[in-house]
Design a binder for these strands. Structure first.
Lengths: 208, 208, 208, 208
DNA sequence: GATGAATGAGTGTTCATTCAT
DNA sequence: GATGAATGAACACTCATTCAT
C-alpha cells in the first residue's frame, strides 16, 4: 500500500554463512540458464528462484530487485570475459602488435562464444536499464589500453571508434547469430580492421 | 505479447481508404513519440492508441499485436534512413570513394540524430524480438553495395565487418549517448576507419 | 520494472457508458460487503473484484489503487450519513435546541447502525491513510453549524470539542461494540452531554 | 499476522534473567522508535529486531507474533499514561472536583504529547486488532472512578459517555494533529465539557 | 469501421514466521 | 538462548488483447 524507496544497491544482504554464498551462486547460475534458454522474456524472478531451487523470498534476500540481479549477472559475465582476455594475452609469446590484437579479438570472440543467448539477453537488459556499456567498461577499457603500447596517442574519439568497431561487430555477429562467428576468416577480418585503423592513425601522426 | 500465437503478420488490415491511411500514420507517429518520450517502458498499446487519438480497438484493427506495431515502426524508420542516405549521395558531386563514404556515414549519423530515444528503443525492441538486423537490412545492404563501385570484390565476411563496424560504432555512440556523437571529429574517424579497412583490402586483393 | 508515479486521483476512468456506471456501483457495494464481513484484513482488491463479479483489471480501470477505492467508499458512506442527518432534521417538527440536537445524535447513531463493521473498517482505513477526519468533514461541519442557530458564537476549539466529543463517543461505542449502542439511554446521555456543554457556554457568554 | 493461529499470549517466554529483561526492553523501545519514525507501514518485525540490535529469532523468542508485540507496547504506553495521571493527581493540592478533573485531563494530554506518531500508530493498531479500548481500559477505569468521590452514582452508560467523550476528543485531536492540541484553551474546554456533564447529572440526581 | 469496457494471466515484491545450526 | 538464512503465501497492480455494441 506504500513502498518506501531506497537507493539502488545490488545486493541487499551480504552473505555471512557458507550456505548463503552457495545460494547466491545458485541464483546467478539459474539466472544465466534461464536467460540462455528463453531469453529476456522468460527471465522472471519467480522462474529464476525456481530453477535455483530456492524460494522467491530467498532471491530477494540477496538481490534488491530484478534489475539488481541482472546487473550482478552482467558484472560476473564481464569479469569472466576480462579474465579470458588477460589470460589470452599473458600466455601468448607473440608480443607484436598484430599478435596482441589477434589475441584480444580471439579472447573476446570466445568469451561471447559460450551461452550466446544469455550474453545477448544480458547486453539487452543492461542497455534497457540505460546503464550503457559502462557496465561493460572493463573490457572496453582494456581494449583502449592496448594501443598505448604503440607510439600512437589516441584521442578519446579514436579509442571509442576502435573499441566499439571491434566489439560492435562481434556483438552484431552474436546478435544476428552469424554462422561464421567463430571462423578464422571472421577473426582475420577483425584483426585487419583494427590494424588498418591503427596504421592509418600512425601515418597521420607521423606526418604531422 | 502473451495470449494465443498466430502467424506473424504485420498488418491485419490493409487500409484502402484515405482515412485509414491517416489512422495508420497517426498511430505510427504516436508510437514514435511515446518511445521518444518515455522509452520502451512507456510503450504500451493503450498509451499509443490514446496519443494517436484512436481507440485501442482501432489500433488492433491495423496491427495484429504490439510487436507488429514495433516492426512497422522499425521499417518506417529504416526506410526514412535509406532515403536520407540515397539523397545525400545523389546530391553530392564528390564521386570519389572518400566522398561517397563520408556522405553515407553522415547520412546514417543524421538519421540517428533525430529522435534518438525512439530509435534506440526500436533497435532494442527489434533485437528483443530476435529479428536481428535483418529488419535493418536495407541500410546494411546499401552500405554493402558501395564498395562494388570499386574494383574490390568483398567476401560476405568483409561486407559484414565493414558495415557492422560503422553501424555498430554509431549505434554504440547513440546508446551510450556520447557527447561527440554529431561532431565532425567523430565523423572523420568513422570515415578513416572505413577507408583504412577498404584500403587494406585493396592492397591484399592486388597482391594476390 | 519501473513505475511512473501519478498524482493521487480517486477515479482513473470516468465511466461513459451505462454498463460502466453499474460496474462502479457493484465494486463499491462489494467493497462494503467485504469490509462488513471480514474487516480490513479481508479487504483485498482481488477479493473485492471477485465479489463484485468483475475482473481485477476492471476494478483498476475505475480505481487507481486500493486506497482510492477506500476513499471513494468513505465518501459514499459519509455522504449517506449526511443525508440521513439532514433528513432527520427536516422531518422533525421540534425546532427546539434539544429537539435538533437529539435528531442529530439519533441520525448519527443510526447512520453508524447499519454495517457497523464496514464503517469501522472505513474509519480505520481513512485514519491509516493519514487523511484524518477531514474526509468525514461534511458531517463534522454539519454538526458545527447547528449551534449557530443559537445565540452562542463558538470558537474553533469549542466546535472541535463539541463535535468530537459526540462523534468520538459514538465511534467508541461502535468500535467497542457496546451493547447499549442503540439504546434510548445512551442517546439520552449523548444529548445531555451536548446540551450541558452548550449550556455552560451560554452562561459564560452571557456573563461576559 | 498470517499463518497458523494459536491462543493469544502476549509473551512466549517470561524473561527471568536481567539480560533477557533488557532484551525485551530494547525490543519495545525499538518498536516505539520505528512507529514514531515511520508509522505503522514501517513497523515490520524484521525492522524492529534490527533496530533493537537482536536477531529476528530472538524477537520471536519473547513475542509470539507481531500483534503480541503491539499489544505489549500498548500496555507499556498505557501503564506509563496511568502513572502520569496518578502522579499528577497525587501531587496536586487542589482536591476540588475541577482541580481533579483538570489534573486528569492535563495528564492524559501530556501522556499523548510525546511520541505522538507512535501512540497514534499503537491506537490504530490496537483498534485494527479489534481489541477496542479495553486495552486502554486502565485509563478509562481510572477516569470512571473519579466521579465516585462525588455524591453522584453514575450508570455504566454515563461512565462510558464521560470517559469516551474526553478521551475521544483528545484522541481526535491527536489523530487530526490539531495545532491547539497542547494549548490551555483546549484544556479549558475539555474541563468545561466534563464538569458541565457531571453538573447536569448532579442536578438530575438531586431532583429525583 | 470504430469504440472502449472488460478480461485475467502474469509479474515483482513483501514480510511474518520457522528451524537448523 | 541466540542467530539469520530460508520460506512461500499473499498482494497490489499492469497491460496486451477481445468482443459486444
Amino acid at each position: 500500500m506504500a513502498r518506501p524507496r531506497q537507493l539502488p544497491e545490488i545486493k541487499r544482504r551480504i552473505p555471512r554463512q557458507a550456505r548463503a554464498g552457495e545460494t547466491v551462486g545458485a541464483i546467478l547460475e539459474a539466472a544465466a540458464q534461464i536467460l540462455e534458454a528463453g531469453g529476456l522474456a522468460a527471465f522472471t524472478t519467480n522462474a529464476v528462484a525456481e530453477r535455483a531451487g530456492v524460494s522467491i523470498g530467498t532471491l530477494y534476500q540477496y538481490f534488491a530487485d530484478k534489475n539488481a540481479l541482472l546487473r550482478a549477472l552482467a558484472e560476473r559475465e564481464m569479469q569472466a570475459a576480462l579474465v579470458r582476455v588477460a589470460a589470452a594475452m599473458a600466455g601468448d609469446g607473440d608480443a607484436s602488435l598484430e599478435g596482441r590484437v589477434r589475441a584480444t579479438v580471439r579472447a573476446i570472440i570466445s568469451a561471447f562464444g559460450g551461452r550466446q543467448r544469455a550474453r545477448k539477453a544480458v547486453v539487452q537488459a543492461i542497455l534497457a536499464q540505460g546503464l550503457g556499456i559502462e557496465t561493460m567498461g572493463p573490457v572496453a577499457a582494456f581494449i583502449a589500453r592496448q594501443p598505448q603500447t604503440m607510439k600512437v596517442a589516441l584521442t578519446r574519439e579514436q579509442v571509442f571508434v576502435l573499441s566499439r568497431a571491434v566489439m560492435g561487430t562481434i556483438r552484431a555477429a552474436v546478435l544476428e547469430e552469424q554462422p561464421f562467428f567463430k571462423s578464422r576468416v571472421f577473426e582475420d577480418e577483425l584483426v585487419r580492421l583494427a590494424l588498418a585503423y591503427l596504421d592509418s592513425l600512425k601515418q597521420i601522426t607521423v606526418r604531422e
